[in-house]
Amino acid sequence: MSYVKLTREQLAARVARDIPEGAYVNLGIGLPTMVANHFAPGFEVFLQSENGLLGMGPAPSKADEDYDLINAGKQPVTLLPGGSFFHSADSFAMMRAGHLDIAVLGALQVAANGDLANWHTGGKDDIPAVGGAMDLAVGAKQTWVMMEHLTKNGESKLVERCSYPITGLGCVTRIYTDLAVIDVSKDGFSVVDVVDGLSQNALEALSGVRLR
C-alpha cells in the first residue's frame, strides 16, 4: 500500500479548514505562517502577531514592503482595514490570558500527555530561543501543533514523553501533520484522519506510539 504525504501547502490548507470564521488566531513562525494563505476571500479571521498587530493581512507586493510592518518571523506583512497596533505587553496579554482562540505552533516533539517541546534541542552548542512559544502554549484557549510527522532521520515527533526541553505542560489539543490529524486528550493520541493509502496501523507503526 502506498501513500503520499501532504505538501506543506496542503497541510496549511488542512489546518485553515478547521479554523472557524471570527476566531482570534496566532500563527507561529515557520510552517504555521503558511496557514494565512488558505482562507477563502471574504472569510474573516483575526490574525494576531506577537510583535504588536491584530488584523494582519497578506504579504505586500515587493514595492509595498515596509520593514516597520512585519510579522513574528520578521517578514513584511500588511494590516487589514480595522486592524490595530499595540505594544508588547498588551500583545502578550492577548496571548497569555485566553483572549486568543487558537495558537498554531511548530514542534520538535509532542507527547501523549499534551506536553510540547519546540524551543530548544538542549544541545550544548545550540543557541536556545523561546520567543513567544511558552506564552502561546499556555495562554491560548487551544494550542494546535502543525509539523512534519517524522524528522529528517525518520524519527517520530509524536512521543510518549518529550526528550527535548518542555515549552508547555499538557497544552496541545490537536496535531496536524503531513500524514494525519490527531487529537490529544487525557486518554492520549486519537486519530481524526489519515492521508489516503495509509492505514491507522501503519501510521501507528511509523509513529512509534499508541494511537487510538
Partner: peptide
C-alpha cells in the same frame, strides 16, 4: 519567554514587586 520579558519590564515601570504567571511553569 517574550511575554514574561514584556511583563517583567512593565512591572518595573508600574512599581510591581513581582507577579505570578503560568507561562514557563514546569520548564527550564
Amino acid at each position: 519567554p517574550q511575554g514574561n520579558l514584556a511583563e517583567r519590564i512593565r512591572a518595573a515601570g508600574a512599581g510591581i514587586g513581582g507577579f505570578f504567571t503560568k507561562v514557563g511553569f514546569g520548564t527550564e
